[in-house]
Computed example of a mutant assay.
Amino acid sequence: MAGPHTETPAGVDRSERFLYTTLGLLERSRLDMILPHEHVFVDLRTPDQPGYARADETEVVAVMAPRIEEIKERGVTALVECSTVGVGRRADIDLAVSRATGFPIVVPTGSYREPWITPFVREAEDDALEAWMFGELTERFDEADYRAGWIKLSAGDDGITQLEERVLRAAARAAARTGAVIGSHTIRGRVAMQQLDIIEQEGYSASRFIWIHTQEEPDLSFHDEAVSRGAWIEYDHVSRSPDEDVKSLILQALEKGYGGNLLVSHDLGWFDPALPKGGNQRPYTHLSDVMLPLLKASGVDEETLGLLTMENPFRAFARPA
């Protein structure tokens, strides 16, 4: 079921790769199940709103640590935080939750789409955007002293804007220098294909792109095209859509031989500072408790389940030291 992830960007040594986390670099041998798309802290207000991304760290830890403990009990060994700049990324709060639970979290650099783009990203020159992302990948976050694990972006539903394209091109250049994966919240298949074109124009590989929310594109020919180009497709709606629908989509992908290019997660959590007590958090447990048993009952073998939940997330997000 392995997919076509065989390309290596020029100048990047892929002989040894690690997951870059809040608790340092982790080898594959130290990890089992990884959730590739979740949120610990999110603020979906635009950055110009009063109180944006502000919260009491102690309160966030008190609310989110029990959610982390739930998945630790189920054998989950790492989680990918998908809140980027523009939607309230707080790498410092992610670190606090991680330290309180002894649980590694993979946190992104990068920027969300318009109108959530911050003044810095909007006003920065192209070289400055690349340098910012490269610096967070190789040195430290602006708000916390550890390194970003990947690049998270987004694109408008009707097409990528000029500013979003600038950010993507800068991200591709920073990623090519580090081996980092680029993931993008992209709803429309034609926009995802446009993003792949841009990444390749910048000299990076489509195999280092994750099409986040692939399930939102009903035309499965776009899923086929993304995989044929080597990209990751991500079905991140476990427990947010009917189980039978999610299971059917995963099974179709496996039947087509896309197991090596497929990521599966919930897109849940999270502490929202715009709501009292952070809102109503939803657990990260449905994949373990419900979806994996459903897939197994449908004939998916243990090796394939391990590919989806362990091998693929590591291959997608790991990069050289």
Rank of each mutant, 00 (worst) to 15 (best):
M1D: 13
H5V: 06
P9M: 10
V12N: 05
F18D: 08
F18Q: 09
L31S: 09
F41W: 09
D48Q: 13
G51E: 00
Y52D: 12
I71Q: 01
I71M: 01
T77I: 08
T77Y: 05
E81C: 11
A91M: 11
A91D: 07
R99C: 07
V107C: 10
W116D: 00
I117G: 02
E123G: 09
E123F: 04
A124Y: 11
A131P: 03
F134V: 01
D145E: 15
R166G: 05
A174R: 00
A174F: 04
S184E: 03
G189K: 12
R190V: 12
V191M: 07
E202T: 12
S207M: 03
F209V: 05
I212Q: 09
Q215E: 13
S221E: 10
H223W: 15
D224F: 03
A226L: 14
Y235C: 03
S241A: 05
P242F: 05
D245V: 10
D245F: 08
V246H: 08
L249F: 05
G257Y: 12
P273C: 01
L275C: 13
G278L: 04
G278V: 06
R282Q: 11
A297E: 11
A297G: 01
S298K: 11
V300P: 12
G306N: 07
M310Q: 14
A321K: 12
